[in-house]
Design a protein around this nucleic acid. Sequence first.
DNA 1: TTGAGAAGTCAACAGCCGTTGGCATACCGT
DNA 2: ACGGTATGCCAACGGCTGTTGACTTCTCAA
Lengths: 179, 179
Amino acid sequence: MTRAAILRAARDRFAADGYDRATIRAIAADARIDPSMVMRYFGSKENLFATAAEFDLRLPDLSGVPADRLGTALVSYFFTRWEGDSTLPALLRTASTNPSGAERVRAIFATQLGVAVGRVVADPDEAPRRAGLVASQLLGVALTRYVLRLPPMVDISPAELITWLAPTVQRYLRDPDPR
Amino acid sequence: MTRAAILRAARDRFAADGYDRATIRAIAADARIDPSMVMRYFGSKENLFATAAEFDLRLPDLSGVPADRLGTALVSYFFTRWEGDSTLPALLRTASTNPSGAERVRAIFATQLGVAVGRVVADPDEAPRRAGLVASQLLGVALTRYVLRLPPMVDISPAELITWLAPTVQRYLRDPDPR
DNA sequence: TTGAGAAGTCAACAGCCGTTGGCATACCGT
DNA sequence: ACGGTATGCCAACGGCTGTTGACTTCTCAA
């Protein structure tokens, strides 16, 4: 189906180039159709991006995980979900320069990670703060590994990264406020 | 001086809009001169960005800091250096979509953070990996706080952020490899 | 006073962009 | 066989971009 081909090409281009540099003409060329077809199916570039970047973190249910293994569970999940999927870098690239892209990230963060963290945190008042800290570390990894491609972060294996990151996330989720 | 006015306007625009959306015409308008002046002074947009984003992390000498306080020292420094300076978000916004911007970030971290970390790490072989992990956390904070502006990360105070982040950075710098 | 050189203005260029509308073709139920 | 509908291509539009070169104005030393 043409519509699906456009979406696939759009995701790749947005991921590789970000919102501004990813042109409708290039996306159409990748999908081997005319640029006007993109408009017919999606109305506008903004709308195409909204549809292409519509996404679900598909966070697993963490409520069955032992409290002292939450960090490992969440970090492991992060890599099985995103290693090899270019949607997250696409979103980061776009959110960095496009205000509506940034808004989208904030919404995803609040409704998905925020809610999931809220369920495993001891004091509900602290949930947003703890979720923010977790996001800062995990999005930092996504940024340095998938977008900026800092060599040390690219070369290291997911398994080793998990052993380094899990204690950090575990502490952000469960340790008492260090103040 | 005109040259300085252009640079100031360029930094602001690159910071606010990223490389692509920051137009030479807009920068020139901010500096209240003609767009062609920008070309006369800097030759090209690429070159203007290179000059505007020329920057020095100005990392302090960490060799005098007690080994168990390195995390606090580095994280505290991060906020005194970047809170209120829009150059880092400008660089991140640009590096996310512009390949030469990303290359610039890689160079800065290799020659500045990498070297500084190399001096305080126990085993020199592990220095790049530890520097990468530190970068992942600190750039993650810059991304979520200054670029994406996730509410919990914006609302939290630098002082509190330091108490949360310092142990993370301390562990990345000095703790034994968790494998 | 004059003249060289810096500083700044102006209009235009070629190219790429998102978007539009008209026109051809293929498909498919009736 | 037919007509409607989906699918597709083509050419063009107005607008914005980085960049260029010719032109005017200012500054200041000789």
